[in-house]
């Protein structure tokens, strides 16, 4: 790719990209820096280097945000959501990609429409309905809500992977006498596995980070997710910001490590799902 070669253009380009990098990294640097500082040090100067590394911020955050329970809840919720979205989504995506049913157009249209439905349009009856059924503070129920919200996105993304699989493979299996289920499970699913992995990563990211539904439906201490627990911890007035930043780092770190390691998949998946359809 050769666009414009002048030295001046290149210099300006790198300056702009550098400024944007600084803007992006500055708050993240504050997060890391202050997670190992004491509260008085932060009040004195949030930009200064720590005088000594206060690792006890992390142990206090671990206890105060009840991370042994809440991280576990987040992990459960994330795993359940991934499982539900990937299984139900890949079935639907396969049928829609291969136009196996006459109503494929209507179903696609309906799913596209629900991706843009505001959460508030269904949140209130859903909440009071779940309350009546005793499904508040139930992680499985929240996983079902997440599945409903994100599976249209997953279906649209997975559909493109199924579309890329040669038809001959499917036809050969049918000629050999495979049932529709066998065709799907033994032939198509393994071929689409890179797509399923991408969907799993993105849905995992979404459910790990989700706030509105989690804070509404999981209020009981022992069912709360890590993000909600962090929200409550950091909302108290007598806040120790060193501890809060340490708690934040505990939640963010696994996500960022995974993202940097698998950035191609994340970016292609998130961009592909929302751009290409």
């Amino acid at each position: 790719m050769s666009l414009i070669e002048s030295r001046l253009t290149l210099t300006i380009t790198y300056i702009v990209l550098g400024v944007l990098t600084f803007i992006t990294l500055f708050p993240i640097a504050l997060l890391i820096l202050n997670s190992v500082k004491s509260a008085p040090e932060i009040v004195q100067n949030p930009l200064a280097m720590p005088e000594s590394l206060r690792w006890d911020n992390f142990t206090r955050a671990w206890d105060d945000a009840r991370f042994p329970t809440t991280l576990m809840n987040s992990a459960k919720l994330t795993a359940l959501t991934i499982l539900l979205v990937c299984t139900t989504g890949s079935l639907t995506a396969y049928v829609l990609a291969r136009k196996k049913v006459a109503s494929w157009k209507i179903v696609t249209f309906y799913l596209l429409a629900t991706t843009t439905a505001p959460i508030q349009l269904f949140l209130f009856p859903l909440y009071f309905g779940f309350a009546r059924l005793g499904l508040i503070n139930n992680i499985f129920a929240v996983a079902l809500v997440y599945t409903a919200i994100w599976s249209p996105f997953a279906v649209m993304l997975l559909r493109t992977y199924f579309l890329a699989i040669p038809r001959e493979l499917e036809e050969a299996a049918l000629v050999d006498g495979a049932t529709p289920w066998q065709v799907f499970a033994k032939v198509m699913l393994p071929m689409a596995s890179p797509g399923i992995l991408t969907v799993a990563l993105i849905i995992g990211l979404y459910s790990w980070n989700e706030f509105l539904i989690a804070t509404t439906f999981l209020q009981q201490q022992d069912q709360m997710t890590a993000v909600v627990s962090f929200f409550l911890l950091s909302g108290q007035y007598s806040s120790d910001w060193g501890e809060i930043m340490a708690a934040a780092l505990i939640i963010v770190l696994p996500v960022v490590v995974l993202f940097v390691a698998l950035q191609r998949r994340f970016i292609e998946g998130m961009a592909g799902g929302s751009v290409k359809g």
């Binding site: 990294l25 708050p27 504050l30 706030f211 993000v227 809060i244 963010v252």
Partner: peptide, 27 residues
């Protein structure tokens, strides 16, 4: 390209609650 992309995308993968608190408390 990849390097800058990964950096610019970082805030997207951080939970909204955490981003909000960093700005609120640290900035």
């Amino acid at each position: 390209g990849t390097f800058f992309q990964v950096i610019y995308f970082l805030p997207v993968v951080i939970a909204t609650v955490i981003t909000a608190r960093i700005w609120q408390g640290m900035i």
